[in-house]
Design a protein around this nucleic acid. Structure first.
Lengths: 165, 165
DNA sequence: CGTGCAGTAGCCGTTTTCGGACATGCGCTT
DNA sequence: AAGCGCATGTCCGAAAACGGCTACTGCACG
């Protein structure tokens, strides 16, 4: 699948958006870990899904958008990873969950660590809210874009610091 | 690259031809070793390169065609493998060469064994005449389509048994 | 006696590493 | 004459290492 991409500015730094014909392929912070190799993608000014996603992201940062409706088209990922990402996508704005809870939902309660690894490779930063997953004790644990961004995102959503541990 | 394919009958068994937009992608005996996974290719009745190659193959088997002019478009292969396949393509009808000779031509005389491995993965059976490569002592050594076919091809070209070892 | 913290040992999918096996041929030893 | 070791690029399988984790343990404090 051929991908096109464009970069946008956000309050948390520049982000790169990528899309194919079928939908949004990914959203990454510049320089975050697990950033894919974008050298073969074609940089464009405008594209259907890119524009829609950019618009929704800006709305999110203005506090005016609480969910993303741009269709996603996974360009990578194993079966397990995709099932984790799907579960992530269902966490509503302002809510949080735990790695263990996701593992349990997948009927694989012992695969907690594997879930952590999969969450870390979520290709759609913010859009698929991997930042809403906390450790069993409510700690931030980790974030591919850096813990500072994770905390900032949760604060903006009023989900940090935790009210009820 | 999207590939289309079709199967044809030859005196040595059915063969599968595959092609992309730019040219012939490969020709394999049914069930030969290193046969690629064709399950995602679209089977077609007719296509520019497929038709030309099929015609040339039939002419070859009738003894009326001694070289193939259908353009090839490699869909796989490392740099090393492609250079080996290019060298193979230059062996004329009725002639034979040795694995060592090819390695020498590539300025890599020690890579004899690697040449053997690469020859074995030649995607264009017959069209790129990997059957014209013999062991240093003139033995048949191996053929992805089976030694019987290799011998039959060489016999048809009057290159077997060897006249001058 | 609680409480808190550090260390530890399992859990599981993915990634990375590693060791052979090959469509060989030359040179050297037995 | 037959056998062994080595050199080369690639693929493939097995094995090990590596994480955005957790629950449990043992120990040091009040």
């Amino acid at each position: 699948m051929k991908l096109v991409c464009k970069s946008i500015a956000t309050p948390l730094g520049r982000m790169l958006l990528a899309a194919g014909d079928a939908g949004l392929a990914g959203v990454w912070f510049e320089g975050q870990s697990h950033h894919p190799d974008a050298s073969t993608w074609q940089v464009v000014q405008s594209q259907c899904w890119l524009d829609q996603a950019a618009e929704e992201l800006q709305a999110y940062f203005r506090g005016q958008g609480r969910q993303f409706k741009t269709p996603r088209a996974a360009a990578w990922g194993t079966t397990f990873q995709r099932s984790v990402w799907e579960a992530l996508a269902e966490i509503p704005w302002g809510a949080t969950t735990r790695y263990g809870a996701i593992a349990a939902r997948l009927n694989n309660p012992l695969a907690v660590r594997a879930v952590g690894a999969a969450v870390g490779r979520n290709p759609w930063s913010i859009v698929v809210p991997c930042h809403r997953v906390l450790g069993a004790d409510g700690s931030l644990t980790g974030y591919a874009g850096g813990l500072a961004r994770k905390q900032e995102l949760l604060t903006r959503e009023g989900a940090w610091p935790l009210s009820s541990p």
